[in-house]
Design a protein around this nucleic acid. Sequence first.
DNA 1: TTGAAAGCGCTAACAG
DNA 2: CTGTTAGCGCTTTCAA
Lengths: 338, 338
Amino acid sequence: MPVKKRAMTIQDVAKAAGVSVSTVSRVLNGKVDVARDTQERILEVIAKLGYTSNLAARSMRSHRKNLIGLVVPDIMPYSIEILKGVNRAIAESKFDLLVYTTGDAQKNGAVLHEQHYVSLLSNSVTDGVIIVASATAEFIADAPIVAIDPHVINPNYPSVQGMNYHGALEVMEYLFGLGHRRIGFVKGREGNVSAQRRFQGYKDALEKAGIALDETIIIHGDFTQKTTYKNAHSLLASDNRPTAIFAANDQSAIGVYQAAEELGINVPNDLSVVGFDNISEAKYLGLTTVDQFLSEMGYIAVQMLIKFINDEPLDLEIHKMQTKLVVRTSCQRLLQPA
Amino acid sequence: MPVKKRAMTIQDVAKAAGVSVSTVSRVLNGKVDVARDTQERILEVIAKLGYTSNLAARSMRSHRKNLIGLVVPDIMPYSIEILKGVNRAIAESKFDLLVYTTGDAQKNGAVLHEQHYVSLLSNSVTDGVIIVASATAEFIADAPIVAIDPHVINPNYPSVQGMNYHGALEVMEYLFGLGHRRIGFVKGREGNVSAQRRFQGYKDALEKAGIALDETIIIHGDFTQKTTYKNAHSLLASDNRPTAIFAANDQSAIGVYQAAEELGINVPNDLSVVGFDNISEAKYLGLTTVDQFLSEMGYIAVQMLIKFINDEPLDLEIHKMQTKLVVRTSCQRLLQPA
DNA sequence: TTGAAAGCGCTAACAG
DNA sequence: CTGTTAGCGCTTTCAA
């Protein structure tokens, strides 16, 4: 059976210490204008009673809570990667972290509720909130907001974004450098900004290299392994097969890998496969992945948010991180076309 | 620049809709006794204004918050594994999740503060809390508590525990079945209950098999790769080398693996290595791991907690999961002694 | 240096 | 059906 004692209030402490609630409150908040012995007595009582102040009540009256909120759609590989970076920054700061999730983006009729969760935290309990992969454009909030990898970009609040476009250019250049000319692409989820950026990078790289876009070597996908696996078969089985395939994310890359394997096509000997993102087992399959440093994004977002909370200007270092660290390509595993 | 509009209150809504705050509150809480058109008007205003109720204020008055708290020391592989299971259960429930962490177990002078965080959530904002890998024995809390894998077991509140002892027995039996007789052990962190249980399982299994405990093939460790790597060298290099090594966790197993590799000892051909836990890259190194199903523990803990919150009895199914699912050994990779 | 008292935004009786 | 009112536990003036 769970413990269900009634929680103590500041009143209980006051009574036990024989003082008024306001005096206890002063001690609690480290105010200096309390007599030494009163202070000690109160602290003793607090310790003995195991009293902890009520977050809700406290948040309601005072402004600074030393708490940062993070709203994520779920705890899946993508969010987890970001969480790791956020955690690191939190550990280094004097803020604690409150992660809010419904466990499933779809649970309560989706996107509509993002605003809800943000205000839930920001208006009450936290000093600021970070929101991951949001599709909402505008937020009403008491406290500062930083968005990570938002699906739609709004100039009204700051965000940390993956370098999708430039990452894609880099990958293509690397493939060109290896001698590939016929490079297929697996598209990401329809309407997703990151996916669009990656595709744009692919197309622009082709154009710059003077290679015509060949629609027949473009595979439709939705960031899932399964869809790509299904959609990749016919292209891989045909004579039309490209020498390399660039997938919009690592899951898609795995899908290609599985389809290839089933058809007896060896990766990477017969076919080079690169995938964006680096959060799945793709790397263990010998696939090349483009690391977007999701966790860096989380780390940076916290730093930015803390600056905002403290009303400090964003310094150069953070800007640099923002633009430099977020993408790094690691293509060691790719081979030249057969 | 972050958005910093003043947050709306229920008063603003009431004013805008031309009703009293209590009427708005009723609509907000889905009470039935509100006229159709009043209701609609209020909902419209709420939507237009983008109003969201203040968590802190709401929590203070009403008892049911539909929110479950989870207190974790940090967001590291161990906690993440549990988080995944918690997330799954949350997604299936009508509760949302609030994860609280300081980012680093050591940040504020450690263990002392667990009680603090628990009451922080449980006394105010959540309907119940799950606490991971706690070292605290007693909790004072308003709401129900469930502990996951506590370092010290207290009969006063329920906990979900990994089957450390039985898992260890299973591993040993499997190794015996393969013909191993000289089986080394890498100990876990000193004073950790799980580590002790695993070691006890090792010892008891030996005894049951009529094999004397050989202290010389026991390696000291602390659950880290590095320590084990350092400590394993001399044993692996000696003639005394066992045919199999059972490590208290996966990190330790990796440490053994690295040391072995460096000495030109092939795993698993020359030496079988099994590790408890299954959250690191151990599996990709071809090491055998004992899956404790950390994520299952998280899943179960949420289910238990929800039962407590709803004052429902724990049903058989949960009990079964509690005792049956938590450990599964998967030893396919182990070979017979050379 | 301390206490009394006024709310923070909200919900829940209690009247009407 | 709706408004008035009394707090929830806390911080923060304002007085003493």
